[in-house]
Write a protein that binds this DNA or RNA. Sequence first.
DNA 1: CAGCCACTTTGCAACGTTGCATGCAGCGTG
DNA 2: CACGCTGCATGCAACGTTGCAAAGTGGCTG
Lengths: 335, 335
Amino acid sequence: MAAKLKDVAARAGVSVRTVSNVVNNAPAVAPATRERVLLAIEELQYRPNLAARNLRQGRTGLIGLAVPEVSSPYFGEIAELLIDAAQHRGWTVLIDRTDGTAERERRLLEGSERHTVDGMIMSPWSLTPEELGRHSASMPLVVLGEQETGGTADHVAIDNVAAAREATAHLAGLGRRRIAAIGLQPQLTNGTAEQRAQGYREALAAAALPAEPSLVKTVASLHRAEGVRAMRELLEAGPRPDAVFCFSDELALGAVRACHDHGLRVPSDVALIGFDDIEDGRYCVPSLATVAPDKPQIAERALQCLADRVYGRLGSHPARQVTVPHRLVVRESAV
Amino acid sequence: MAAKLKDVAARAGVSVRTVSNVVNNAPAVAPATRERVLLAIEELQYRPNLAARNLRQGRTGLIGLAVPEVSSPYFGEIAELLIDAAQHRGWTVLIDRTDGTAERERRLLEGSERHTVDGMIMSPWSLTPEELGRHSASMPLVVLGEQETGGTADHVAIDNVAAAREATAHLAGLGRRRIAAIGLQPQLTNGTAEQRAQGYREALAAAALPAEPSLVKTVASLHRAEGVRAMRELLEAGPRPDAVFCFSDELALGAVRACHDHGLRVPSDVALIGFDDIEDGRYCVPSLATVAPDKPQIAERALQCLADRVYGRLGSHPARQVTVPHRLVVRESAV
DNA sequence: CAGCCACTTTGCAACGTTGCATGCAGCGTG
DNA sequence: CACGCTGCATGCAACGTTGCAAAGTGGCTG
């Protein structure tokens, strides 16, 4: 049987309340008493019962992280950074997988988690902005990768339009004339893909290149397999593109694979730029040019926002929109 | 203010206890009453307070997953599968990162988590078998990727010796004569690398190939960067190997990169086999031959073991050793 | 020496839930 | 008709912790 406050109190010859004060580093405890209590705690291997503490305080020390998938490199890296940032603040992260479906995203916000976590960080794919705003009333919520939606959910994202514009402009600057884009996701309410598409179009216009609809490919997911499929379709369709801007590194890695299968060389025949700066891209052959969001800062700012809400430092202050910097990383696939 | 049992009871005109019975699907509730209560629950949007329930029952519905790193592809995929398997059993997974350090692994087992999770699944890198066995007494523990250690921790792993033997034998079967190995990790107590090295040596012996110590490279981690470094050292050292067995796909991907940088072609100059069957390996160029552990089964069996311990179906039954199947997946890098 | 103050320590109650034991009908049986 | 039994509903207590308010202790001042 695990030791509880009462046991420690008995051993140290003080009241339960005093032990609690020691455990919580309350100031009003005499040094000698504190010593004695700490000794007893050590001897009995006392560990606070979090369930009881949570029940009493109404806080759990847990925060939820809801991402479409855990095993994708991008979300894996984000999760890792968030876990670190949470640890610094004494929080533990509880990861949930939504598959990007509206139903699971909704259930997480409405549902069973409500008393389990103090707040939530979500990267939504399918929820409408209205829904996000509505739910943020009942639980502190930070949204990743989206623009402001109204409601009280804070938002942390990079400037996707600018990032896409820079990537596309870089390809144009290499002298490429038929620049394709892979990654539009019309089935998702998530505005990210649309923003990137807009940046792509803006850059084409700025370079006085025509915007050919046939060069923009939609995908069902951001995985490699979809990159392979989309690139293959581009190559088989007609005059082939000489550059491709992919909305994720995984798509780009699939696209590289497809080029290789068609006997094309990257970047001499087709230049490629991805998005996310996942680790694979730094070591694959050829190494992958990409747009690198400042992930550590995304994690840090998201937790900062969440902490402000959970501890009520903001009250019902309106939603904040945090824009995190990014940079274009040029590597072998686009030189 | 969130609704609680008392509020629902008042609304439905029954006692608190009856509402609790409905919520828990207890049999002794009249259908009409159940209807009325369910209606009230719906109207008030009642959700059970888990902290209170946990306090009362002594169970939390959470299980811990302690892995060295979340963002590595292998652990990401394992985490994803475990989250699924846990969900089927009504558990939520709480992920912790150990960095593979003994100190953090120890702290997770001893420490603060003790009242937070019902049990733990850990992939240890630095803890001694004795420590693992000792801690499993106080909390249900399932160990991934290790052989039995004594104590009451269950173990789930593949047969690493056999797997490494098969991979190496495949390379020998291609007619390769100088087969190197990358991935020994003498700094870890984790026996996995040593088992793979043993399988490698056994296969060399079976093929009547000499075991050259200079062809076995140790690494500081299983990441791509270490694969690059180790491969580079092999290539610069002397007569170059014509095949390499890497103890992880990430190491192998780094090794491919290093070969490419040296102007060597894979597999014609150097054949490569990795380990883990991560998604990258299926799409990279060349695609990566690998040893594929049956990951879904690893997750399923691990949760099965944990459930048996948590619900006491085993009592203090001695540790179980579960061996999960694997298979060799031949791809472009080793044909 | 009484009175006040600062510093420590304490007891009580409550957080929301469920285990246990018991109450209360209504029905069938002897 | 009395009795026991079954099916359903209830009340009380407890899980381990912390907020609150108050009590105790000692020293210092007037």
